[in-house]
Amino acid sequence: MKLFIVIGHYGSGKSEIAANLAIREKCSVLVDLDIVNPYFRTSDVRGELAEFGIKVVASEYAGSNIDIPALPPQINAVFDQKEDAVFDVGGDDDGAVVLGRFADRFLESGYDMLMAVNMKRPSTASIERIIEMRGAIERASGLKVTRIINNTNLLGETTLTDLLAAQKMLEAADLGEVEIAGFSEILDRLPRELAARKFELKKFIKYENGIV
């Protein structure tokens, strides 16, 4: 049984990372714990993930156009049946509060908690703010961050220079292992010494069709 938790600031790419992580780690379940934001979330890509044999467990209200912060009861089954799972958590410490309810079960089973970081987001633009955010999330969840995913991007205006500058700062900050995430068009140009930390993302979460 492997349990991964993806947390971070809202808009840091958590859902994108969670979906890709579930595929990379060959998990059977992706749990959508985002009770904060009803737009652009993992449960929107249920169909695509099914093709990889990944079941999405989400609130029955997810995607139903009703913003009721309810949790799916099937979450307990993920622990009981010892499934390999990724938990996609809502943004900030507000979103992480919900983890607290399952903290005992995570501590009992062991877990890997990844913090998605986009240093182009103002609230996580410096190491100081990242540490502040990490502390708030750890206090809210009762769990500890084990790894950082550097997902520094400006969407279509992302540059390798920005991504590498963030990687340098994050690695120097003693935050634990730092994986470097991005789409292939950026990561294909990654220096060789960073290859081992590369986390290539496939695009899942999309804006509404046709908005340019």
């Binding site: 808009g11 103002p122 400006l154």
Partner: peptide, 13 residues
């Protein structure tokens, strides 16, 4: 220098 923001945040900012 650019940053990535949500529309709601941008209005508040």
């Amino acid at each position: 220098e650019k940053v990535l923001m949500k529309g709601n945040e941008a209005i508040a900012y």
